[in-house]
Design a binder for these strands. Sequence first.
RNA 1: GGGGCCGUAGUUCAACUUGGUUAGAGCGCCGGCCUGUCACGCCGGAGGUUGCGGGUUCGAGCCCCGUCGGCCCCGCCA
Length: 591
Amino acid sequence: MSQTFRWQRTHTCGDLRPGNTGEQVILTGWVQSTRDHGGVIFVDLRDRWGRTQVVFHPEDAALIEQAKRLNMESVIGIRGRVVERPPEMVNPQIETGRVEVVADRLEVLNRARPLPFVIKDPPEALEETRFKYRYLDLRRPAMQRNLLLRHRAAQVVRRYFDENEFLEIETPVLMKSTPEGARDYLVPSRIHPGKFYALPQSPQTYKQLLMVSGFDRYFQIVKCFRDEDLRADRQPEFTQIDVEMSFVDEEAVFTVMEGLMSRLFRETLNREIILPFPRISYDEAMLKYGLDRPDLRFGLEIQDLGDLVPGCGFEVFEQVIRSGGAVRGFRLPGAGTFSRKQVDDLTAFVRNFGPKGLIAVQFQPDGVKSPVSKFVAAGWMERLRSRFGVETGDAVLIVASDKKGVCDALGNLRNKLAADFGLIDRSRMAPLWVTEFPLLDWDSGENRWVAMHHPFTAPRPEDIPLLETDPGKARARAYDLVLNGSEIAGGSIRIHQSGMQSTLFRLLGIDAETARRKFGHLIEALDYGAPPHGGIAFGFDRLVTILAGESSIREVIAFPKTTSAISLMDGCPSEVEPAQLAELGLKWITS
RNA sequence: GGGGCCGUAGUUCAACUUGGUUAGAGCGCCGGCCUGUCACGCCGGAGGUUGCGGGUUCGAGCCCCGUCGGCCCCGCCA
């Protein structure tokens, strides 16, 4: 218990091997567990690098008394000699399992109180408890691995872009609030009472302005903020890999990003992925997979049945087609024997997305079972069977509704069933580009067009005439990168001429005055020699989540917030002093 | 804003169909035994405002209302 001994470790807890046998070493770390056999005592010492077994022998009475009092998660230093374990005592589960350290000196550097939960994988504590004591949760090897992976991914990104002549340039975190897109987080200005900064939803306009400045190739690993409701894959603050390039078209962007993905997989997971990535148009994705982020790791492809409907005899189908809707479905192998309850559950699931129901056509050995059997014309079931290549024992699941409802319902049903019935090949990585997105989307609530990607996205040249005649049909030069059914990046070739930018603002119902006030600097910049440019932004957290094989974004974020945007650890958001409000010229109004 | 699931010991869960005496178990914690374990083992012990507030009832962990919190989903997320 010397106060003067210098506990400077000679090795980490992951270092020692038989080659170190005989060396005197000093280790420091956390007590993972103690095994007191009455005579000999074993202590597993843990740090970021691994775990090493320390042995205390009973000959040194003072030392063994100290060791007896060790408790879990205390921080200690030990000195001792490395010995090789006899073959029958090797622990093959840990890297250092062929050796142990026979201690001759021990000091408790900081004794830990009993912890709220045991540090082990998988965690025994609920997420709620883990978040309250996140600093303890992060001691778990799985969390250390995830954050190490995240770090490595970030370093790969920096190296890759640096090698390709991209500049990492920081953009402001305090910026102007914009009318389009997600709800902004606002920051009141003390110096200008009544005025506000906004935290960036993305550095979109800044990176475009950097292209106008001639930097040509920009990237940034940057925090973005959106004040919207949360999900398993959504946090109020998240990290983007933000990229912009000058004098490029879609192909050039794809090539550089595929190169990045290839490097990421190789240098973090030691995995090769096949280049180039497949591509699919938005329309085809919606038709075959129901979603604009298809998961290609399994089949269950959707087929349109519109051509089978006229004259089929089932009035519900006929009516949906006459009114411009769609009748589509997919084949689910083995679902021919689903119970009534199973089908009812799927029907309830489908109703979440708009359609009134789900028609399950079950092909059973003794015939076809379906609620529409008694309505449809003779031979219709056979046409259905050949359309889907049905084998006995399968079912075809059909949804009839407006097009959006059919896509939503079948797309989500497809994902759910694949997950529920283990149809997803977890060993596969399935990246793809989704292209040819619509430029605009009709917002029936606000009764106006909104940008599907963002208002700076260029229309495809051949669709420019449509802007005046049928804006909803115009396609954008926008693209998403989808990996395993998750949208991990999205971008576009931008508008680089102020005339077109003004046209877009006009289409979006943003009047000239508002456009000038909110985006005047960008429009003006486009007139001073803006190069053609485009870019993309990766959801870094989502990407790392997939690399780590996790299912929630929270598993790769050191200090995440809950689904109600609260930090259970430090209790933010929290109230502030009245004086702070006064200084900002703000007053709390109870509603 | 809406729907679903959940909240019981430090922690993870249980307490039965349909409310009934003293709310149980694993892990952790405390004490004891044990010289080769590595999820050590064995014996004993302590530990509870059943999230909070109200209601129904002779009686509420259980039923009802409200509220707070967690997770999943819809809306939302250019």
